[in-house]
Design a protein around this nucleic acid. Structure first.
Lengths: 353, 353
DNA sequence: TTTAGCACTCTGCTGCGCCGAGTGCTAACG
DNA sequence: CGTTAGCACTCGGCGCAGCAGAGTGCTAAA
């Protein structure tokens, strides 16, 4: 791909860039005359026609039908993203919107995530997805048992991403608050820096040995925590701006948009699809174009996603989903900026603890 | 309206019922011949034509155009709902789905709410909305301060609806865990049974007097709690099945569906619109038909909603939004049943504490 | 009061022809 | 040899006419 960036003639690149830019902003197939008129390349439309025919042969452009202009193919977009796309800095108002909206809500992580999804959707004019931090694999910063009443105890887990998870545990017989306090201290000592997922096994055995007076209570507690975290995974998904997709011309025919929207509405599918991106590491956005997507439903979409995290560790992902004609330049900057900003906010939340 | 139920001739009622039933299930304007054939009223289509003309004069039916069949007007639906609609018990599979899905998730209230919205949407084949319990006006069952680290304290509020709200409060100088324990006890004593909304004023003054060594800390804590609850209000809204609306024939033209979907996607609007229904008290569903809706966006929709709660107190609302052609009989039962079931689950959660 | 019959109306569909946009090809030009 | 002008060709979108079907309202008879 990169090699081609070197080998393709400059004029061809310019034409491919012009076609892509124009199509991104107008959603209309673009003809040779338009290119010659709007983008001063100093050559006539006939020349451009020839080049466009070449570009089509090479698979960068395609024609919806013979007497229409050209539109970029997935391969064309890929080349555009890798080699042609202009660097786009966010404008003042955009940055301001992000800052304002996120700062206002940063007191509580759920609100922050929700606000992030909303702002991202608004600014990109597409659907947005945010995967919030999970509790399963996150590093435990604090774990505590709080006596609620004579027959229930609140189990509290605070992770390094600032996520506070709680579960209420019914108990048979009243427990001394001091015992709970002791257990909390012990649990903290053993589990801080570890994760719930890694907890089973060695650590669990040690804890039970230390606190074997309360073994059955603890067993129950861990089961509750683990089962709860399993089921609450889809609660990590926040989707916003679905309707904006319907505003895009390519989705005017409902039947084209339907499968995509249904996919995005199903939290668990979205979660599994996007959680793969976590492995790619922090910093930078990843673009997946049309047919590059694994899932059938997304074959007519592009996805721009970026993981965010704390302490160099990925805890979640944000993403924008739009037609392949999406404004890659803008959306990439946007997603990168917001992932960074989210990481920053989490770091600040974390350091406050 | 009720009076009319008495005065309308039985045959006319039967015809109105037939037209409405048929239109609800087919979404096609229904003609006199159809009625005569499918619903054995023992009269010819001509007779039915006459009656239908009358019903149209009286405003219960309308004609999309002269050579089409009739469809119920909003007034017609209203009469149907008030006087004609068949009682519909939920089928075994339906009840089973509800139970299974809700029970599986009832360990944590957020999950429960989300699952409720999902199931409600699926079974009604419409969009569903669930307003979760809020923390502002709810009765406080437990309030506690948990020391997290040397410079932060976790404030925990458990309401009578089983909702657990938490906020992390940054502090200037370390506080003795025993002091926090004392404060927790005092706060519990003063606030249990009250609500955050009513907290300002008298109670607050007393507390500050009692604990005036920590006045500034407490002030800050209350501010945080109140501001947080204000901003987290829209986090109470769960919407599901938006896409199902697009499956309804009346919303095939995107432009008709758009404003509705956009309205439903905006959590705060939905919240204010539905929270009014809370005042109508527990038990039973409320139907709002087409033009009866205050909001312009919902003028082509019907909304079936029911509040749920604990201890006789309303804490939230569930609702189904669909075209005016919605299956009132099914949806009403569904909404009533689920509101009840939600109330039961909350009561169980509560009693466990 | 009900029914049969009939003329009438209106929508949705289909087929036709036209327009315009854009191409590919060819031939000429520098 | 690359570039350009000219031209024939293709094809989708649009408007229009005509047809079929569904359903009504009206009238007259039972």
């Amino acid at each position: 791909m990169r090699a081609m960036a070197e080998t393709m003639a400059d004029r061809k690149k310019a034409i491919l860039r012009a076609v892509t830019d124009d199509y991104i902003s107008t959603a209309e197939p673009v003809g040779s005359r338009t290119i010659a008129r709007k983008y001063g390349l100093g050559v006539s439309s006939a020349t451009i026609r020839n080049e466009m025919a070449d570009l089509e042969d090479e698979g960068y452009l395609e024609q919806p039908h013979v007497s229409a202009g050209r539109i970029p193919s997935d391969k064309g977009y890929r080349f555009y993203v890798d080699a042609l796309m202009p660097e786009r800095a966010l404008t003042g108002p955009e940055e301001k919107t992000i800052r304002a909206e996120c700062a206002r809500r940063s007191d509580e992580i759920q609100s922050l995530i929700r606000a992030t999804a909303k702002v991202l959707g608004e600014l990109s004019n597409c659907a947005s997805v945010v995967i919030g931090p999970g509790v399963k694999t996150a590093e435990i910063r604090h774990i505590q048992l709080v006596p609620l009443s004579s027959d229930s105890v609140l189990v509290l887990v605070v992770t390094n991403a600032g996520l506070v998870e709680h579960r209420v545990l019914a108990i048979d017989h009243e427990m001394d608050p001091r015992d709970l306090e002791n257990m909390s201290r012990m649990l903290n000592h053993r589990l801080r820096g570890s994760s719930l997922a890694r907890m089973r096994g060695r650590v669990l055995g040690e804890i039970l040995a230390d606190l074997n007076a309360y073994a059955s209570f603890l067993e129950e507690m861990f089961d509750l925590l683990l089962s709860a975290t399993r089921s609450s995974d889809q609660d990590r998904v926040y989707v916003d701006g679905l309707m904006r997709l319907l505003g895009q011309p390519e989705f005017n025919e409902l039947e084209r948009a339907r499968p995509i929207l249904e996919f995005l509405e199903s939290d668990d599918l979205v979660l599994t699809e996007l959680s793969g991106s976590a492995s790619r590491g922090l910093g930078g956005a990843y673009v997946t174009i049309g047919s590059e997507n694994q899932r059938q439903e997304l074959r007519e979409c592009s996805v721009v996603c970026a993981p965010y995290g704390v302490g160099g560790q990925v805890v979640g992902t944000i993403a924008v989903v739009g037609p392949t004609r999406i404004d890659y330049s803008l959306v990439t900057s946007l997603v990168e900026y917001m992932a960074e900003s989210l990481s920053d906010l989490l770091a600040r939340i974390q350091s406050a603890k």
